[in-house]
Amino acid sequence: MNNKKEKGILAVFDHPNRLLAAVKKVRQAGIRKLDTFTPYAIHGLDHAAGLKRSWIPYATLILSLTGWCLGFLFQAWTSAVDWPLNVGGKPFVSWPAFIPITFESMVLIGGVSTVLILFITCGLPNRKLPALDPRFTDDRFGLFVDKNDPYFDEAKLRHLLKECDAEEIKNVA
C-alpha cells in the first residue's frame, strides 16, 4: 500500500465490543492519535474515542435560517420593489402566499449545505488515504494507532492489543 500519510499499528477485531474495550485501554495508556474503522456507526464508540458531539447542527440551524430570510426577502423584493404587480387584489407583500417558497428555500439551503459541510469536514472526496483493510466495510472492526503519538510504544501496544483479543495486528507503513 502506498500510504504516505498514515504510519502506525493496525489491529483488527471481530466484534465491536472488543474494539470498544481496546479503544478504552489504548486511551488509558495515554494515546490520543488513534482512529477506528467500522462497517457501521457504533453507539458509544465516539464517546470512548474521545470525540465530541458533532458541531454540524449549529451550522445547519444558522444556514437554514439564512435560507428562510433570503427566500422571503427575494419574493418580497421581486413582488413589491422591483416590479410591483397587482395580482388578484392581493397585497404586494402577501406573506401567507410567500410562506411556502420561503419554507422550501430554507430546506433547500439548509439541506444542501448540511451535506456539503459533512463532506468537507470528513475530507471527502478523499483520494489520499486508502482503506487500510477491505474488511472494514464488511464485518471487521479496526483500531489504528498513529506512530507520531508521544506515548507510542510498539511492543507495549502490541501486547495490549493482543490482550484485547485482536484478531490480527499489523504495521502500516
Binding site: 470525540l51 439548509g110 448540511t114 472526496p125
Partner: peptide
C-alpha cells in the same frame, strides 16, 4: 468518495443524517 468508516467520520455522518431526516420530515 473514498469513504473508510473512520470514527470521526461516523460521528459527523450520523449527525448530518439525523439533520437531513429532520429537514426532510417537514419537507
Amino acid at each position: 468518495m473514498g469513504w473508510r468508516g473512520s470514527a470521526r467520520h461516523w460521528n459527523h455522518y450520523e449527525m448530518a443524517y439525523l439533520l437531513l431526516a429532520a429537514l426532510s420530515t417537514p419537507l
